[in-house]
Design a protein around this nucleic acid. Structure first.
Lengths: 339, 339
DNA sequence: CTGAAAGCGCTTACAG
DNA sequence: CTGAAAGCGCTTACAG
């Protein structure tokens, strides 16, 4: 019943002894590309297998220039998009042989200490997946001296990578389907006015509308991407202007809020009376209860690109940060009246 | 424009030199409880501050019996409960000074390799937050020799901690409110029949019903906790038996599926014609669109307890694993017809 | 290709 | 309380 912690720690020395070679030989066998003869490699591998040996990643990291640990810095999961993006990211990191270490910045706590604690482990790079992250936290990442890859967020410096969805394209895709299907009076519901993503999505929407000779009837920024914000925005917006027949929301959760508000309080039918279009394509969008037509953020493509950049930064030398926009995709379901 | 990686690595030696003390003294200053005179501590601290010194956690881990890294082993985020639990867990780990390292087991990939890779970093403990985790992965954790804390899942051994919601209590809470508010024909919608949680919730529900002299009208296991599963279950269940007026679902997402199926296809009003009660209390439950009455899983209490157990396992000696059930809480909203 | 030696940055007994 | 020394488990030049 009682449990005794009993981890046998096999080391290079043990394997070397059993294989009858030097510790260097063992080390080389586990270092891809290092020179070892087929014979010794064989003997080392079989000894290692017999002993159940695996190199201690901590010790290895101490002598190498990298640790294979990637810090993911984020705020709270206050929006279904975040866990979704996060899941794709960790999955890709694993495939690339990286171990994700999590840094969740608590809005009630110290904005920088958790970041320093991750840095103590000599993480190779900081992936900042941060909508709701305090500016101080972001600043700490940038000043850390460690490569930073920002997700979907703008930064005032040009020394970090930024990867984000092509928000202008997204806005244009929303505008196009709405106009092509005969909508006349359109509105945009954004998140935080200050955030790049909300700004760009709105700009892309308006610009495409302009190009088709249509003006925007109304625009509102909610301060967040949350369901509640969307719910309230819909109420106030549609009370003001009842002829709006199409709304583009800067996130799916905003769109869900809009849809529910419309159903509960306004007595309008979606999409018959009003079309709603979201952005993200979180799994919930395909639930029959919503059937949300939306602009998909390509989380897997984003994650893949992040992995590429991690590899890029991992080789020493003069480096050039990039700002990369990943194309979005229109997903047609039932919340937009067609034809 | 070009970015040069330029991390200055200050070491104990640098600080020792500046402070005019030995490296041991520096080390002791950063080791809580170690003997250092106020004077040297002062000098060390100020030197450290001037240099921006922080102990290298990797090197430190190499000489100590612990690393402060906690592995979180999980499957996919296929259910809103998981990110919610995960968020609470990581938050508490940070508060306890632990760094979470993520191990997501890909169903398409190797079920054990990612776990070994985490073990290579000498994680202190494995927190297995695993509904959908393959048995092989779970076995690998248990055999690792590292303390294991299982979340909401049963195990065939008695050498690991298990912490989970009090599922019997949850079932009883659901039964009680349903019966007290005059429901007559009740059904249970579970997840996987084989899983402890789904089984226990159903048992608790039936047992409480029994005690009140009521039988269960119908029971179905969906194989998962997903929205889709709930949607389909509702369709087939209610087609079979139209007089059911109360359904207890083993998860909120199951309940959302049931609600939407009922609204879309059965023309029943919730809660007027049919009451639905969920389990988890994920944030979405409080969205006006659902207003789900549910049994809350105390994620923060669970996370707190996990932290306690991590501390417990961290001190050496004869150890005793525990199975801890955390009380659940009824959250009343609008999906159950009252009185 | 191979091994002995030095070193990564820290902590822990060990004498004082 | 303090410092010199040894050691954690590995890798990397350095000779051969």
């Amino acid at each position: 019943m009682a449990r005794v912690k009993n981890v046998i720690r096999v080391t290079v020395g043990d394997v070397a002894k059993l294989a009858g070679v030097s510790r260097s030989a063992v080390s080389r066998t586990f270092t891809p590309g290092a020179p070892v003869s087929a014979g010794t490699r064989e003997r080392v591998l079989s000894a290692a297998k017999e002993l159940g040996y695996r190199p201690n990643a901590l010790a290895r990291s101490l002598t190498q220039s990298h640790t294979n640990i990637v810090a993911i810095v984020m705020g709270e999961f206050d929006n279904p998009f975040q866990p979704w993006m996060f899941d794709a990211l960790t999955r890709h990191l694993h495939r690339g042989g990286k171990m994700p270490m999590l840094v969740t910045v608590d809005l009630a706590g110290d904005p920088v200490e958790p970041i320093y604690r991750a840095l103590d482990f000599r993480v190779d790079v900081l992936v900042v997946a941060a909508g709701s992250l305090p500016d101080e936290s972001v600043a700490a990442c940038i000043e850390s001296g460690v490569p930073v890859i920002m997700l979907g967020r703008s930064v005032e410096t040009d020394i970090v990578d930024v990867v984000l969805s092509d928000n202008h394209m997204a806005g244009a895709q929303a505008a196009t389907i709405l106009i092509n299907s005969g909508h006349k009076s359109l509105a945009y519901v954004g998140g935080s006015e200050g955030r790049l993503a909300s700004k760009e999505r709105g700009e892309g929407f308006v610009l495409a509308l302009d190009n088709m000779g249509v003006g925007l009837t109304q625009k509102v920024f909610c301060g967040s991407y949350s369901y509640q914000a969307g719910y309230e925005a819909a109420l106030s917006m549609l009370a003001l202007d009842k002829k709006i027949d199409g709304i583009f929301c800067a996130s799916d959760s905003l769109a869900f809020g809009v849809m529910d508000a419309v159903r509960d309080h306004l007595g309008l039918k979606i999409p018959h009376d009003l079309s709603v279009i979201g952005m993200d394509d979180v799994p919930m969008s395909s639930w029959p209860g919503y059937g949300l037509t939306t602009i998909r953020q390509p989380v897997n493509k984003i994650a893949e690109f992040v992995l590429e950049r991690i590899d890029y930064w991992s080789v020493p030398g003069e480096k050039q940060p990039v700002l990369q926009r990943i194309p979005t995709e229109l997903i047609v379901r039932n919340s937009v009246r067609l034809g």
